[in-house]
Every structure is written in structure tokens, then in C-alpha cells.
């Protein structure tokens, strides 16, 4: 069934979009991430203009994260105070990111900048995840006693606050910077940033794993909502028809993924997610290095 996307101004097979949504939703349910980092490149591959792909996948990530957030909220796995602190930085970061995106778009380098962001961020994050989980799997048998959290330089920063749900007493500066960094990437890459936020919360902020997913979803919902709003105004590139088709698929896919995810161990899940992230980065890098079939592109000026 062909459907015309009013903002992207292209006609696509609705079943293909539902399928893409389902596949990304399945993976996001399995790994507990939004899946925006897969969605944006897939949409560009289908032929959606990159600006529309970035903005709309932020919208779809928001919708998909609402489901997850509600489930975690019911179980009390959300540290609202931490979420709000992250959000403070997140709003600033995404506002900055939307401006940056509009700038590179005017310079005609949107595709390139988006690709480079993806390759660098996904390459680093994926690589770290793979090595970390491999080490954890190897270490498992030894069952070394793990400290509650390690004392790092960040614990010496001022403006300390108590985050009860996370059992932390740390400065509010690191969460604000983490939120800002992820918010910036969210606007430029059209991702929620869960794949980035989750490791940062665990390793940099030292939050317990139980509240990490719920709290990251809290931050993602609001940051992607902000990106949707800002992109609607700055670039008119949010396609609601596209977002809804993707959402319909991903909401269904997430159910299957989540039920399968419960059967996998944490280290293995992280390792698989890391491999997937590295694979996407490698694919995008290959796209930049390979001679394109068509060297020219047309754009309304």
C-alpha cells in the first residue's frame, strides 16, 4: 500500500515503514534503547530527506519511549530528581543542536555532518560496549566483589545534591553536562540518546542499573519532545504521517523484543547491542568512503 508523506513529499510503501518500525521496535525492546540511531539511517536509505529523517525519528523515539517510561514509572524505576537535572542540560543541548543543524544544512553539508556524528559517536560507544561486556562475561566466573560505586574526580565538584532513588550524593554539574551532550546529539542525529545516556549514567554518574533505564527514558521523552517542537519551527521537517506509521510498527515490535530481552543476561545484551552499534557505524563509514553511484544531488534553494 503506497502512502504519500506530506512533509517528506515522497510516496513510500506503508508496509515497508511498518516493517522498519517493527524491526527497530523489536531491537529497542530487546536492548531497552529507543532505536533512533538505527531509524535515522534506515529512513535516509529509504529515500526520506535527511532533515525529515532526523526530525521525524526524534518524534517516533519520543512516542516509543512514552510506552517504556510508563512501564518503568509504575515499577518506581524513575529517579525524577536526576531526570529533571539531566533535562536541564538536555534542553540547552538540544536547542544548541537544532541551531547547529540548521547551520550545516544551509552550508549543504547536512548529510556529511550527520554521517560523521553517527560514525564517531556510534563507533566509540559501540566499541566501548563490546569490550566492556566481553570483559564482564570473562570476569563473571571469578565473581569478584564489586564496590557500590567508585570515587572519581567528579565527586569533588561543588553544588552537591542528594538523589535518593539513585542512592547518590553528587554535584549536579556532571548530570547537567551529560544531559547537554546527549541533547545536542539528539538534535543533530535524531536519536533519543539512550545508547549513550545509559552507559554515561552507569559509568560516569555511578547510578544503580535498576533506575538507569527508567530515568534515561524520562530524559529522552522530554528531550525528543523538545527536538520535535524546535525542528517543527526551525526546519518544518517533522512528518507526522511518517512518525505514526513507524510508531505503529515499533510499538508492536517492542513487545516481542522486550519479552525476548528478559531471557538474555545483562552482559550479553550489552555486548550484542554494542556489536549492532559498531555495525551501523561501519556501514555509514563505508558509505562515505565508497564512490557514490550518483555524484550530484538536487535541492531547492
Amino acid at each position: 500500500m503506497q502512502v504519500y508523506l506530506p512533509i517528506a513529499e515522497i510516496t513510500v510503501d506503508a508496509l515497508l515503514l511498518l516493517g522498519v518500525g517493527f524491526a527497530v521496535g523489536w531491537l529497542s525492546g530487546l536492548f531497552g534503547v529507543g532505536g533512533g540511531f538505527l531509524m535515522t539511517p534506515l529512513l535516509i536509505l529509504i529515500g526520506v530527506p535527511s532533515a525529515v529523517a532526523v526530525s521525524t525519528s526524534a518524534t517516533q523515539t519520543m512516542g516509543a519511549s512514552v510506552s517504556g517510561l510508563m512501564a518503568h514509572w509504575r515499577r518506581g524505576n524513575v529517579d525524577v530528581r536526576m531526570g529533571l537535572t539531566l533535562l536541564l542540560g538536555g534542553f540547552a543541548g538540544s536547542a544548541l543542536g537544532v541551531q547547529l543543524f540548521a547551520l550545516v544544512r544551509r552550508a549543504g553539508q547536512a548529510d556529511f555532518v550527520v554521517a560523521v556524528f553517527y560514525i564517531v559517536v556510534l563507533g566509540i560507544v559501540g566499541g566501548l560496549m563490546v569490550t566492556e561486556s566481553a570483559r564482564a562475561i570473562l570476569r563473571r566466573r571469578k565473581a569478584a566483589p564489586r564496590r557500590l560505586h567508585q570515587h572519581l574526580w567528579i565527586h569533588g565538584l561543588p553544588f552537591k545534591a542528594r538523589f535518593r532513588a539513585s542512592r547518590l550524593y553528587i554535584s549536579i554539574l556532571p548530570p547537567i553536562f551529560v544531559g547537554m551532550f546527549v541533547g545536542l546529539l539528539s538534535a543533530v542525529m535524531g536519536v533519543g540518546g539512550g545508547f549513550l545516556l545509559v552507559p554515561l549514567m552507569i559509568y560516569v554518574l555511578g547510578m544503580p542499573t535498576s533506575v538507569v533505564i527508567g530515568t534515561s527514558l524520562f530524559q529522552i521523552v522530554f528531550v525528543t519532545a523538545n527536538v520535535t517542537f524546535l525542528q517543527s519551527i526551525a526546519t518544518h521537517s517533522v512528518d507526522i504521517v511518517l512518525a505514526l506509521l513507524l510508531l505503529a510498527g515499533s510499538v508492536a515490535g517492542a513487545q516481542f523484543g522486550a519479552s525476548m530481552g528478559t531471557r538474555l543476561r545483562g552482559e550479553e545484551t550489552r555486548g550484542l547491542l554494542g556489536l549492532l552499534v559498531v555495525a551501523v557505524a561501519a556501514q555509514l563509514l563505508w558509505g562515505l568512503l565508497q564512490r557514490p553511484d550518483e555524484l550530484f544531488s538536487l535541492m531547492h534553494g
Binding site: V66, T228, I233, L247, V251
Partner: peptide, 23 residues
């Protein structure tokens, strides 16, 4: 555009909520 952006947020959130409900 502002109204449209807010509308998109509301619609996507509703769709997500519906998904959570079904789940």
C-alpha cells in the same frame, strides 16, 4: 509550526501510551 509541533508531540505520546496500554 508551533501548533503543529505541539500536535505532533501529543499524537506521538498518545500512540506511545496506547502501545503501553496494549502491552
Amino acid at each position: 509550526p508551533a501548533l503543529y509541533g505541539l500536535g505532533c508531540i501529543a499524537i506521538a505520546a498518545m500512540a506511545g501510551w496506547l502501545g503501553a496500554f496494549l502491552f
